[in-house]
Write a protein that binds this DNA or RNA. Structure first.
Lengths: 179, 179
DNA sequence: CATAACATGTAATGAGTTACATGATTAA
DNA sequence: TTAATCATGTAACTCATTACATGTTATG
């Protein structure tokens, strides 16, 4: 149940429409949560029905831009949620299942798949490093900047782990082909 | 759609019942895919209906142990799937949403939540390191062992990243309380 | 023969994805 | 005035979670 709270957070930072939020998810929010525009519109309606956000203009305006902002009740709900305990999400990556399957029934031809994913992670890493260079100085930081930097840093670490893992996977898979 | 393939992989490695598979998921499979027994039973029925696995005894035996094994068609499906291209799963962690929300509306009281999750990751890391010491030697490895080690190593790296991130988060959150 | 442990399942709900539908605004 | 872009939404489906229901086997 984090999507509504990711939306509340983003709207607290700055009011915006469904499509604007979808774009924020694609850009910056993407490295800690992801969602499609369909999900976002559905969730915004729900949040408005629950009285946590309002929109302007209120009219049933299909096709016309509708800007949402957070109500006091929404802010309160967000505070409550932040302080709530929560389990860690399970690590669930099909690539690891593929590698285990490869061990069981291989050799198969999965080098290209690995190589493509490796490239994808390298691209993301580069993108995040650009964000970091652009948005964060080495100066003493306030808490907001420190938290934002930490979140981006998490994305960077995540990409680095996968680059390491996939590079190693490629080595193993290519070795077995050479035999 | 990785659960059926995680099941096929595990059953190729060794035939087993639903509950046995659930236990494997809790133990070793947990660091690359997770599932509950309800999901597992449902998926096993589906796989059997599709002719990818069989079970003994076939009888509609509620309460009696039923051991599944993979049919040639199941093995073939697994090979096909392993070689199939696949996008990276998005990074989706409620803790990062919490940290971003904390930046927007904080300070709130989320230190305990962070501390608890930190402890959970430290416990997991220790567990994985025990597995590693127990199951893998430093000897020259064959491909199966190398792949299994890589998967475990991925879990270890993952835990380490979160330990770093949460330690840093704790520092930031405690600093702001001191002000 | 009672009870704990083992074993398999159903039902309801929630969350996420994919495909599709439609209206409004702007610029060529 | 037509096409592109902006913008909002519906519907159907799959996957995962939670709560519950029930039968079997071993053992004291």
């Amino acid at each position: 149940m984090s999507l509504p709270h990711a939306l509340l957070t983003s709207l607290v930072e700055r009011p915006g429409s469904g499509l604007e939020l979808a774009r924020r998810f694609e850009k910056s929010i993407g490295y800690y949560w992801s969602a499609t525009h369909q999900q976002i519109y559905r969730e915004l309606s729900k949040l408005e029905k629950e009285g946590l956000i309002t929109s302007e203009p209120e009219a049933d305006a299909r096709g016309r831009k509708r800007v949402y902002e957070v109500l006091p009740a929404g802010r309160e709900e967000l505070v409550q949620w932040v302080e709530r305990e929560d389990d860690r999400p399970p690590l669930r990556d099909a690539m690891l299942v593929r590698l285990r399957a490869e061990a069981a029934i291989g050799p198969t031809h999965l080098q290209d798949t690995i190589r493509n994913r490796l490239k994808a992670h390298e691209r993301k890493l580069e993108e995040y490093q650009m964000f970091k260079a652009r948005d964060f100085s080495d100066d003493p930081e306030n808490r907001v900047e420190a938290l934002h930097r930490l979140i981006l840093e998490t994305g960077i670490k995540h990409e680095r782990v996968w680059i390491e893992v996939l590079s190693e996977a490629l080595k193993i898979v290519m070795l077995e082909d050479a035999q």
